[in-house]
């Protein structure tokens, strides 16, 4: 009995240190980052594109725009392919094939992001440069790479959402003379919509936070992009690229970039969680 209590205590401490780690990180980045936002003025910090640390200008608008552009385009790609895959695997292909394909898609999550970046630089960037023009390092290149990276998230969570729809809906609809496809898009997707929205938002969280692969293919210039072939710098790349040599205010400004990112991702995750819960609730009322 004494042993039980000891182990319980030890595990409790482990659990607490993990949680307090998160709390400490939060406190730390806010403590380091908030002063410079206040000093520069939130308007200047968030809405100016003038980022010139050596002369004390810290405006991150071009990076917010960059992150936004890359994320939105990546999610278009990720949603089309991820949701498509979920529908095919869940509703149309024979169970044997699905049993092989689903793990393969999930395996995509296990590939290190630097490898995605590398493949992007070697294959996608030259293709874009040759066939579409521009420097190749661009919003489009990053979106394609990120779109593939978020596939496992979008696919497996959407599949779970579709699977949570009562089978009787499907049967009922088929018996009323609906084809499989009509049933899928009029009944199944409609019933699973909050779960699917959660899948997309979680994928978005991944895309916003991804750093390494994006640094390698985005081009990292400090300008607001005007088209999908323009190079961009994202919030994450900015931190990773400059942290090595930053000091003083410059360092604080990078922390402030981190705070911005942190808040964006927190919002996305919370929304996803709420939607997923609501989806689960809908499933249970039956």
């Amino acid at each position: 009995m004494k042993q039980d209590k000891l182990i319980a205590l030890a595990l409790l401490m482990v659990a607490f240190s993990a949680v307090s780690g998160l709390a400490l990180i939060t406190v730390f980045i806010f403590k380091e980052g908030l002063p410079i936002i206040v000093k520069t003025g939130p308007g200047n910090f968030f809405l100016s594109s003038d980022w010139d640390p050596s002369s004390g200008n810290f405006g991150i608008f071009s990076m917010i725009a960059g992150s936004l552009a890359v994320t939105v385009c990546a999610m278009v790609i990720g949603t089309v392919f991820g949701l498509g895959l979920a529908i095919v695997l869940g509703e149309f292909c024979p169970p044997g094939l699905a049993a092989i394909l689903k793990p393969v898609v999930e395996l995509l999550a296990g590939i290190p992001s630097v490898v995605y970046g590398f493949v992007g630089v070697v294959t996608i960037v030259p293709l874009i440069r040759t066939y579409l023009g521009g420097p190749g390092l661009s919003v489009l290149a990053s979106s394609i790479v990120l779109g593939i990276m978020v596939l496992p998230t979008v696919t497996s969570i959407s599949m779970d959402a579709l699977r949570a729809v009562p089978r009787s809906y499907w049967q009922g609809s088929i018996a009323l003379g609906a084809t499989k496809w009509q049933t899928t898009h009029m009944v199944m997707l409609k019933a699973a919509k909050s779960g699917i929205a959660a899948a997309i938002i979680l994928g978005m969280g991944r895309a916003v936070g991804e750093t390494m692969a994006v640094i390698m293919v985005a081009g990292n210039t400090l300008e607001v992009p005007h088209g999908i072939l323009d190079p961009v710098r994202t919030l994450t790349s900015n931190i990773a690229l400059e942290m090595g040599y930053a000091s003083g205010q410059h360092r604080e400004a990078l922390f402030a970039t981190g705070v911005t990112l942190f808040v964006i991702i927190m919002i996305l995750n919370t929304v996803a969680l709420v939607m997923a819960r609501r989806g689960a609730g809908e499933g249970r009322t039956r």
């Binding site: 009562p166 009787s168 009922g172 018996a175």
Partner: peptide, 17 residues
């Protein structure tokens, strides 16, 4: 069309949501 001509009612009521 066949399933419209032969309507089916299941054991467990399953109205769509």
């Amino acid at each position: 069309g066949l399933r419209r001509r032969m309507g089916m009612v299941y054991a467990v009521p399953e109205p769509l949501p």
